[in-house]
Simulated scan of single mutants.
Amino acid sequence: MNTVTVYTTTRCPYCVMVKNFLVDQNIAFKEVNVETNPEIMHELVKQTGQMGVPQTKVNDKWVVGYDPNNIMMALKN
């Protein structure tokens, strides 16, 4: 069973693209809006070294930005 979490902000077009992609692929995911929870943003930066969103955690792998290929590869591993 895959666990997918998408870290987003409110007005991020690439976040919407990632969520739409996951919905289109029938992949269940949890969304965490880091804009409303700065503590999670700090944790994210600590884990990935990246300030931007979207960041998608697929199981234990991180995919930064809108990157459907890497999301699918992470799901297969």
Rank of each mutant, 00 (worst) to 15 (best):
N59R: 15
Y14S: 10
K30E: 11
M73V: 13
D67W: 07
I40F: 01
V16A: 12
V34F: 00
T3R: 14
G49S: 14
T5P: 09
E35V: 00
I71S: 05
I71R: 02
Q25M: 15
I40C: 01
K61P: 02
V4K: 00
C12Q: 02
H42L: 08
L75R: 03
V23C: 03
P13V: 07
V18P: 03
Q50C: 11
Q25N: 12
D60T: 14
V16P: 00
N77H: 08
F29H: 07
N2Q: 12
T9N: 03
P68K: 12
N33W: 01
D24M: 00
C15K: 04
V45L: 14
P68T: 12
D24R: 05
V32G: 00
I40Y: 02
K76Q: 08
N26E: 13
D60H: 14
N59H: 15
I40T: 15
N70S: 11
K46W: 02
H42D: 09
E31T: 14
V23E: 08
E31M: 01
K19F: 14
T5G: 10
T48A: 15
L44T: 06
V63H: 11
K46E: 11
V34E: 06
I40K: 07
M51E: 14
L44V: 07
T9D: 04
N33G: 03
Y14L: 08
V64P: 02
G52L: 06
A28N: 06
N70P: 04
K46T: 11
T56I: 09
Y7W: 10
D24N: 02
Q50D: 12
V34C: 00
M17I: 09
V32Y: 04
V45N: 09
T36G: 14
T8N: 07
P38D: 08
T48E: 11
F21Q: 06
T8P: 01
T56C: 02
M72C: 03
P13K: 05
K19I: 14
V53N: 03
F29C: 08
K46Q: 12
M17P: 01
G49V: 15
T8L: 06
M51G: 15
V6K: 04
M41F: 15
M51A: 12
D67S: 14
P68E: 06
N20K: 10
E39A: 02
Y14C: 05
N20A: 05
P13Q: 02
V45C: 13
N69K: 03
E43T: 13
E35Q: 10
L75I: 03
W62I: 06
M73I: 15
F21S: 08
F29S: 10
Q55S: 10
K19R: 14
T5N: 10
V23Y: 01
V58T: 02
T3Q: 15
I40M: 05
N37M: 09
M1Y: 11
M1P: 00
M17Q: 10
G65D: 06
P68C: 09
Q55N: 14
Q55Y: 07
E39D: 07
V4I: 05
A28V: 09
V64Q: 05
